[in-house]
Design a protein around this nucleic acid. Sequence first.
DNA 1: CTGACTGCAAAATCTTTGCAAAGAC
DNA 2: GTCTTTGCAAAGATTTTGCAGTCAG
Lengths: 152, 152
Amino acid sequence: MIENFDKILEKFKQTLKTNGLKYTKQREAIVSFIYNNKGHFTPEEINEALKKGHEDMKIGIATIYRTLTLLEESGMVTSLSFDAQGKKYEFGLTKHHDHIVCSECGLIKEFYDETIEKRQNEIAKKLNFTLKDHHMKLIGICETCQKKRGKN
Amino acid sequence: MIENFDKILEKFKQTLKTNGLKYTKQREAIVSFIYNNKGHFTPEEINEALKKGHEDMKIGIATIYRTLTLLEESGMVTSLSFDAQGKKYEFGLTKHHDHIVCSECGLIKEFYDETIEKRQNEIAKKLNFTLKDHHMKLIGICETCQKKRGKN
DNA sequence: CTGACTGCAAAATCTTTGCAAAGAC
DNA sequence: GTCTTTGCAAAGATTTTGCAGTCAG
């Protein structure tokens, strides 16, 4: 499941071709940024980052939004809503995982738990749903922030 | 945990008094609406509903937002983000539960699963977080929409 | 060439804020 | 009376859209 960037780009180009879409500098830059900076970014953050590294290429926020939507539809990125407003995006061709977020400092850790995954399927079945996806977000206080609290 | 409306209102008044806040028609109307119409509402939906039933009382969308924030802080309502944009609010003094949402028609069902709750605590502990809260949303296709699909 | 893509600015959403008048205690 | 709350309208923040020029295939 851990693929290198060349394979990722190949897959991306393939998806575009299949749908009669075009491969552009901007699209490559966005995929590249998300793949090479594993993490969780807002569209605005991606926009800022790409303006710096690529003085030769212009990019507008609308393109970021349009591309992220495209990438999400094709499963290459995943959107998450951690905060009250605004989504964050992360690279999506990695192993499925969920998130735990620190309510003090915003630290995000990822985890995967087989027991929960299985149970979710059972629950969906019991409620007569065909399960397609899920989002689970645990909210807590991370180790560092707990220590900080202790000191104050 | 299933409390009647009088007790709810009492608790609300108490919270207000404790914090030096005031009990107003608008605040009561909002609490009343959410309590008496169990479900999931957007601020706008609450606004519309309250404009109809209460010709005597004026209410503005800003008040809805301000009151919902207040109610959420005091734990009387819970906010959920089911859709890309906009939050929904539900009454919060009921037993904890999670949600499964139909991606076709938007149907929301609630459930509670002890196994998952326990596992979440274990995961948080393993990652050195103090667990405060969690949000789990399963996404699937409900029975009705599955049948509809079959027919087409 | 042709149709898709882009940046820009304007529009559309959703939510918050400033303020003077009204209301709760 | 005092201090909070309210509605309104304006401002913010985030995301989407229209359009003319640009670019990929």
